[in-house]
């Protein structure tokens, strides 16, 4: 009778990086791997292995716990941008890697060469209030009906619009698509806004409903 593993599910699809490099000569230095999770982007995303030093442990293979540790340096290409040599040892244990065969490598390299640079997301300086907040503000007689937008200190591919600049991203309850997830799994995308974590305002129903926050 076999061991029956019981645990949480996830959406990773592939093998551990150590399982791939362990099967290759010189730990796959020079070979290309890709993370299945990043294949959703239109721009090419892949890693080229620069050096790999696995620290295989021989314990508990029946618990799927071997081939998890080591140090790996890769040349990271993410969404068409080369990030140089980075250390991905922390995420190498994830069962989400796929080897790119040598005859497929040219396709990825060509895609990288021909990939146009990603458009910067220019965010509006102000956004409309969520419906419930707006309602409360109106009831209590506040002057403001908009909220000032703030970004994190180092936003990823986004910035606030300059004075008088037209933003290319619209953020409002009418246009905002909100992912509804249950235990991390996307079940639907609705047009609406998060009024409060766990409470979703749906444009179609015009009512706030309880959902798991994203």
């Amino acid at each position: 009778m076999p061991y029956l593993l019981v645990g949480r599910t996830h959406s990773f699809y592939g093998k551990r990086l150590w399982e791939i490099v362990g099967e290759l000569k010189e730990f796959g230095v020079g070979r290309m791997v890709v993370r299945s999770r990043f294949e959703r982007y239109p721009e090419p995303c892949f890693f080229r292995i620069v050096s790999a030093e696995p620290d295989f442990d021989t314990g508990r293979p029946h618990k799927d716990e071997d081939n998890m540790n080591g140090k790996v340096l890769v040349e990271k290409i993410f969404r068409g941008k080369n990030y140089g040599v980075v250390d991905i040892s922390e995420s190498a244990y994830k069962t989400d890697y796929r080897l790119i065969h040598k005859h497929e490598e040219a396709k990825y390299v060509h895609a990288l060469e021909t990939c146009p640079p990603r458009q910067m997301n220019i965010l509006p300086r102000t956004v409309e209030m969520p419906p419930l907040l707006k309602m409360v503000a109106e009831r209590e007689g506040h002057e403001r009906t908009v909220l000032t937008m703030e970004t994190s200190t180092n936003p990823c591919n986004a910035r606030l619009a300059e004075e008088g600049e037209e933003p290319n991203v619209k953020i409002s309850p009418e246009t905002h698509t909100v992912p509804v997830r249950v235990r991390g799994r996307l079940i639907e995308e609705v047009v609406g806004a998060w009024v409060w974590p766990g409470v979703l305002w749906r444009q179609d129903k015009n009512t706030a409903t309880h959902h798991t926050s994203p």
């Binding site: 009778m1 029956l4 593993l5 791939i20």
Partner: peptide, 25 residues
């Protein structure tokens, strides 16, 4: 292959692995 016990043994792991066949190794 890891040695299998005579009876079914349930083991708690953090995450299960999704079935994947790489068609190579």
């Amino acid at each position: 292959k890891p040695e299998e016990p005579a009876e079914e043994v349930k083991i708690r792991v953090k995450y299960l692995r999704n079935p994947y066949f790489d068609d190579h190794f």
